[in-house]
Simulated scan of single mutants.
Amino acid sequence: MNAADVMSSPAVSVNPVTTVRAASAVLGDHGFAALPVVDDEGRLMGVVSGVDLLPAGMSPETAHSPVARVMRGSVISAPVTASPAELTATMLSQRLRCLPIVTEGQVLVGVVSRSDLLRILTPADAVLAARVETALRAYSGRPRWTVSALDGEVSVSGPFSDHAERKVVEALVRTVPGVRGTQVAC
Rank of each mutant, 00 (worst) to 15 (best):
F32A: 12
F32P: 00
A34V: 00
L35E: 10
V38E: 07
D39T: 10
G42Q: 00
L44T: 00
M45Y: 04
M45I: 10
M45C: 06
S49F: 10
S49V: 06
G50I: 00
V51N: 12
L53E: 02
L54K: 13
L54W: 07
P55A: 08
S59M: 13
E61Y: 14
A63G: 08
H64R: 13
H64I: 06
P66R: 05
P66T: 02
A68P: 06
A68T: 14
V70K: 13
R72A: 07
G73A: 15
S74R: 15
V75Q: 11
V75W: 03
I76Q: 00
S77R: 15
S77W: 07
P79D: 10
V80R: 02
T81C: 07
P84R: 03
A85R: 14
E86A: 15
L87K: 01
L87D: 04
L87Q: 02
L87E: 09
M91W: 03
M91A: 10
L92V: 14
S93H: 09
R95I: 02
R95K: 15
R97T: 08
L99R: 13
L99I: 01
P100L: 04
I101W: 01
I101Q: 09
I101P: 06
V102R: 03
V102L: 05
Q106Y: 05
V107I: 01
L108S: 03
V109P: 10
G110P: 11
G110V: 06
V112F: 13
S113F: 01
S115N: 14
S115M: 10
S115C: 11
L118F: 03
I120V: 15
I120Q: 07
L121K: 15
L121T: 10
T122N: 01
D125M: 11
A126T: 09
V127H: 13
V127E: 11
V127I: 09
A130P: 04
A130R: 15
R131L: 07
R131M: 11
R131K: 14
T134C: 09
A135L: 11
L136T: 11
Y139L: 00
Y139E: 11
Y139D: 01
S140C: 05
G141V: 07
R142P: 13
P143V: 15
T146I: 09
T146S: 04
V147E: 12
